[in-house]
Amino acid sequence: MDHDRILLEHGGGGLLSHELVTGIFLPLFRNACLERLEDSAVITLGDRKLCFTTDSYVIDPLFFPGGDIGSLAVHGTINDLSVCGGKPLMMSAGFILEEGFPMEDLRRISRSMAEAAQKAGVSIVTGDTKVVARGAADGLFINTSGVGIIEYPSPLSVASIEPGDAVIVSGTIGDHGATVLSKRRELGLISEIRSDSAPLNGLIGSILEASPNVHCMRDPTRGGLGAILAEIAAQSGFRITIEETKLPVREEVRGICEILGFDPLFLANEGKVAVFCSPADACLILDKMKNHEYGRDAALIGFVGKRNGEGLILNTSVGGSRVVDLPLGELVPRIC
């Protein structure tokens, strides 16, 4: 650890986040579940496998096209359970409220959470509320935890990835990050783009039901698709090669990135999943995705190569190639 104080970048899902986890939390809390460093812990109880996850939401602004902090919190929890092969069952909701927060906004956000949970078939079964003084919480923070049951026979994990695996993303990347960027007052951008925030348990369930050869899944939230693929390449030791021309990006997102100098590969998503699977099942999985409302823009973007430590390689649209490293922090803070 090279810093004696926490930086905003430590919460961005990039290299500094990784150093924080592996430098402080993992050595002190070390156990077999935590060492996997996946989106959810996988726990065996008797003959059952459960998955358990927790997350906190601090997004600014609280309301944005395509959702709000409430629906985002539900979707994020559901998706973290789903990418581990779990069927989400129930979740908690903890609210940290700033004194003076509008009651009508809290009612609107709570209603949004209830509707999102009902649509996904998940119950909010417990929770907590704390109120802090003015200026201590920036309006509202939400913490959630979720529990699911795993029925998929093979473990979905970085450790299960094999050479030759196809890499598929379920749709256009950077939608959520671009939406939040466009709505922040200091940027003043006008765009038709909407957040992709969505529950992926139905989409993922259909994929797992169709194919026994899915090896790993991740939802590319903070740090975007680039961060999670670079992280997986580092963890697994495999070279992962992706094609820039195959990356699905909306023109509105591309335009925002060109104006502000951002890369859509590193913008956050809240309704996408990256899938590593046997190449023999890639077409089947793509077909399942494209026939689902949350996977219509799915694309096969690359393949897993040899275990040689080269990391994530991007073949560019102009014919070259470059190594894609974990970003230091997050391009856009307070994104989820």
Rank of each mutant, 00 (worst) to 15 (best):
K288V: 15
I204F: 03
H10N: 13
C33T: 12
G223C: 07
I173C: 05
C51Y: 03
D325F: 12
G311K: 01
I313G: 02
K272Y: 01
G329W: 08
F64Y: 14
G121Q: 02
G121A: 09
L247E: 06
T129Y: 07
I207A: 08
A268F: 03
V249H: 06
S197Y: 02
E293I: 13
L45Q: 07
G202S: 15
V122P: 09
L89Y: 07
D68A: 04
I193C: 02
I124C: 06
L97I: 15
A299M: 11
L20G: 02
L20R: 01
V132N: 07
V332R: 00
G14V: 01
A230E: 04
V275Y: 10
S40P: 02
F141E: 06
L331Y: 11
G271A: 00
I96D: 01
K246L: 12
N291E: 10
L181T: 14
D138A: 13
E270F: 13
G23C: 11
I259F: 11
N31P: 03
Y294Q: 15
N31M: 05
F25Y: 15
G70Y: 03
V131F: 08
D60I: 14
K130R: 14
A234M: 09
A280V: 03
G295K: 06
D281G: 06
G302K: 00
I207P: 04
R254V: 03
E330P: 04
N291S: 12
L45T: 13
I242W: 07
D196L: 00
S206R: 15
E162Q: 15
D55Q: 10
L265T: 04
A298P: 03
I24S: 10
S317A: 15
G11Y: 10
G223F: 00
D281L: 00
I149Y: 04
P65N: 01
R296N: 07
E310W: 00
S170M: 04
E258H: 11
V304G: 08
D196T: 04
L300K: 12
A298F: 08
L225R: 02
D55W: 01
H18Q: 14
G255H: 13
R30H: 13
Q118F: 13
G148C: 09
H75Q: 04
T144K: 10
S17H: 05
A227V: 05
A210P: 11
D2M: 14
F64S: 07
G76Q: 05
D175R: 14
L189I: 12
K87L: 14
R134L: 13
A299I: 03
Y294S: 15
I285M: 11
A198F: 14
D68H: 04
A136D: 13
V21L: 14
R239T: 15
